[in-house]
Simulated assay, not measured.
Amino acid sequence: MEAPEFREFAKSMVDYIADYLENIRDRRVLSDVKPGYLRPLIPDSAPETPESWEDVMKDIERVIMPGVTHWHSPKFHAYFPTANSYPAIVADMLSGAIACIGFSWIASPACTELEVVMLDWLGKMIGLPKEFLACSGGKGGGVIQGTASEATLVALLGAKAKKIEEIKVLHPEWSENTIISKLVGYSSSQAHSSVERAGLLGGVKLRGVAADENNRLRGEALEAAIKKDLEDGLIPFYVSKK
């Protein structure tokens, strides 16, 4: 695909997206297809020659849309909103065009610095103390993760690494395996399954603390659990509210 065809295809896709979102309430929210519906509708192997974008667009309605759960429908009341918007869609187009990988500052200075600044914006919006912000000049600041589950795991691994280093100073005679065996984290008994999964991937114990009658994690219950674990010689290091 060259630039002239891209311009035509992109304009067609914009029209399709706008029509889709404007008329999404007319679509069935939950797909009624059966598991395995897709395979008979597409080739067994990847095509060796390209198809026209007109044919690809036809396949979107023929193959893809029958198996889509329409999260942005006003009739969708499950899970959580995915925060889509027309500005976000346009921004995705630009992001896809630039296609930088911001794994370090030099890999894309604007990418790295914009992330830092915008997460400070978010921190200020939700009232975080200045110590949590990069602009404080300290160790604060955030990074964007791909999913909430990924963020939970990253937070747990960060807390684990920090606590291990702290305990090594206090008990240089302990091996790292000994320290890890004593670590314990906490979450509500109503927490998302990704919290338990983070504990499994992080190789640490996670304790579910009983929630109250409103399914909330209460400070008194958490305090009691931490106190008992300290008495048992364990090392609390992490609390998840998710």
Results as ranks from 00 to 15, higher is better:
E51M: 05
S31C: 12
A91D: 09
S175M: 06
V29A: 04
K228S: 11
F80N: 11
T112N: 13
K11F: 08
F103Q: 10
G208M: 07
L183E: 06
L30K: 15
Q145P: 00
V56D: 06
L201R: 04
I144M: 11
L30W: 10
A224N: 11
E54Q: 13
K11V: 04
G123K: 09
L217M: 05
Y79W: 15
P4W: 07
T49R: 09
A78M: 15
D120M: 07
E131M: 00
S194P: 04
I60M: 13
T178N: 09
M1I: 08
F103V: 14
E131N: 02
W53P: 02
G96A: 05
M118R: 08
S52R: 08
K34W: 12
E48F: 02
R28S: 11
M13R: 11
P236V: 03
F237I: 02
G158E: 09
K163Y: 00
I98L: 12
L119C: 09
V143M: 10
L201F: 05
L217I: 06
S95G: 09
L170K: 15
D120P: 08
L119M: 15
L122C: 03
T49C: 00
A211C: 03
V63N: 12
E131V: 03
K227C: 02
I180H: 08
I89W: 10
Y16H: 10
H192I: 14
K160R: 14
G219V: 05
L234W: 06
K228W: 04
D44C: 03
S31A: 15
G146H: 14
F80W: 09
Y79M: 15
S104R: 12
K58D: 12
E51T: 01
I179G: 04
P236Y: 07
V116S: 14
E231S: 12
R197A: 15
E48N: 08
G123M: 08
L157T: 10
L156V: 09
T49P: 00
K160F: 13
E5W: 04
S136C: 10
Y86T: 11
P43G: 06
V154Q: 07
I98K: 11
V29G: 02
I126C: 10
H171E: 01
D15H: 10
C135W: 04
V184K: 00
A161M: 05
E213I: 02
H72A: 13
I101S: 10
I106A: 13
R197M: 14
R197I: 12
N23H: 07
I17E: 15
Y238I: 01
G140Q: 03
G185N: 00
R62Q: 11
A159Y: 01
K75T: 07
V204D: 01
I24D: 01
S104L: 07
N214Y: 13
K242E: 13
A110W: 08
D92Y: 02
Y86S: 06
E223T: 14
E2Y: 01
